[in-house]
């Protein structure tokens, strides 16, 4: 890579190097076969150019051994690539257990980010270097996509559900954050930066930032403000201690895992999946509660739950 004309973005996360290795391997294969085909075409086209009008060359039907050969070579190659790529993908898609969770809300056309201790930012994400970070993301309107080229990570941010991605930065500095999924008029302006800092610096930044309450504390306040406590704290509705990621028995006999999706659905559409043993008395909070407040409530419920079970 000569500077000034880079062929790859900066490698600033733990997974970047592995992706680049596969990428350059694929590039080598592409160049090799392109070279082989171009050379063969040029060589044959010149070597066997028409020398006399109306000449009839010897006719060749084909060759089974050759057909087998040039079917087998690509087959072996793609199997190798598939195995390599898929194992890389699987190991990249599993977040480490100790990851710090940051919440992301996409809306036309900005990113809203919230740290666990309550610090909030817009279009800029501060993270410590060398610490795994897990993003839990949703959208308020259309599908967006959280893309950090230097980290080689990308995931759609879909309204009505939670998606997640994780990374561990290896380099301090400022990196591009793009919206990857076309989302309307100002799609190209839905950009920002990820600022990777030394952990101490990150702590300083956190304490210096507009001090809000932690996500869980805000959630706890909402828990009282929306009067959830009236039922959920009094036995009329399921209590939330050790609730997160537990198996919930439903009134129709099936069970679900109490993950983010389930909690979200139960707040917005309480009658969709009723916890067995309780009356369906909960009113819907659709339209009264924002995506951000939903995330705060989820953070609150998580804080009461068993600490960090294996997710996924």
């Amino acid at each position: 890579m000569w500077s000034g004309f880079p062929l790859r973005p900066e490698q600033a996360s733990t997974i970047a190097q592995g992706i680049d290795q596969l990428y350059f391997f694929l590039t080598a294969i592409t160049l090799f076969f392109t070279f082989v085909i171009f050379t063969a075409i040029f060589y044959f086209a010149i070597r066997y150019r028409r020398k006399a009008k109306g000449e009839i060359p010897g006719q060749i039907e084909g060759s089974l051994p050759l057909e087998i050969f040039w079917s087998a070579v690509p087959l072996v190659l793609v199997v190798v690539i598939f195995v390599w790529s898929s194992s890389l993908f699987i190991s990249n898609s599993r977040p480490p257990e100790a990851a710090t969770e940051i919440f992301v809300i996409g809306k036309q056309w900005m990113w809203q980010l919230q740290h666990p201790d309550g610090a909030r930012e817009i279009n800029e994400l501060h993270v410590p270097v060398g610490k795994p970070i897990k993003l839990t993301m949703t959208s308020e309107d259309v599908i967006h996509d959280f893309f950090i080229p230097a980290f080689r990570v990308k995931k759609d941010v879909v309204p009505g559900r939670y998606t997640s991605l994780w990374f561990e930065a290896t380099k301090t500095g400022r990196f591009h954050l793009f919206c990857g999924q076309y989302c309307g008029v100002n799609h190209a302006l839905m950009i920002g930066s990820v600022v990777v800092m030394e952990p101490e610096e990150y702590e300083r930044w956190l304490s210096g930032s507009r001090k809000a309450e932690t996500m869980a504390a805000s959630g706890a306040q909402l828990y009282e403000r929306f009067a959830c406590i009236t039922c959920h704290g009094a036995g009329k509705a399921p209590p939330f201690n050790d609730f997160y990621m537990s198996q919930v028995k439903l009134s129709d006999g099936s069970t679900v895992v109490a993950n983010e999706e389930y909690i979200r659905e139960s707040i917005l559409y309480p009658s969709a999946k009723i916890h067995a043993g309780y009356d369906p008395i909960m009113p819907t909070f659709k339209g009264q509660i924002s995506e951000e407040q939903l995330l705060q409530l989820i953070a609150f419920i998580k804080s009461l739950g068993p600490q960090e079970r294996k997710s996924e």
Binding site: I19, Y23, L26, L88, N92, V153, K154
Partner: peptide, 14 residues
């Protein structure tokens, strides 16, 4: 192939 391959497509998608 870069796009059929999962690991690289994550970066290259869109």
């Amino acid at each position: 192939m870069f796009l059929a391959s999962l690991a690289t497509d994550i970066h290259l998608h869109d």
